[in-house]
């Protein structure tokens, strides 16, 4: 799995590419912006072509460690496969999910301003 970090509008965008499974999940958890409880992150899932329960667990676990679980990690660009994985466990209820990364960044930025 390839993890690319960029930032826009003061929000870190973590784009994932490839398989998010038991092998790559620790890598995601170890990524500094994801691990830091104070950083709001937009997780771009567009290029994730496979995700299993440990991948899902990594995202949910990382969100739990954030100060604000719903806004600490904002998801964007889920494809149908990934969306269905979320829905089978009802994990979609825990996240704000956007179909566009820029909209997710705007949302996360507004939230951050509102909080400070």
């Amino acid at each position: 799995m390839i993890i690319t970090e960029t930032s826009a509008n003061g929000i870190v965008i973590v784009a994932l590419e490839g398989r998010l499974d038991a092998l790559s999940a620790p890598k995601l958890r170890g990524s500094p912006p994801v691990a830091d409880p104070k950083t709001a992150v937009v997780l771009d899932l567009e290029k994730v072509d496979f995700m299993d329960s440990s991948g899902l667990g990594a995202i949910v676990g990382a969100a739990r460690e954030k100060g604000d679980p719903a806004c600490g990690i904002v998801l964007s660009c889920m494809n149908n496969k990934v969306r269905r994985t979320f829905e089978t466990t009802n994990a979609q209820r825990l996240f704000h999910i956007f179909d566009d990364t820029s909209a997710a960044v705007d949302f996360a930025a507004t939230r951050q301003i509102a909080r400070t």
Partner: peptide, 10 residues
């Protein structure tokens, strides 16, 4: 607004 934002690409 949030709902529209979440579907911006659509």
């Amino acid at each position: 607004e949030t709902m529209l934002g979440k579907n911006r690409r659509f």
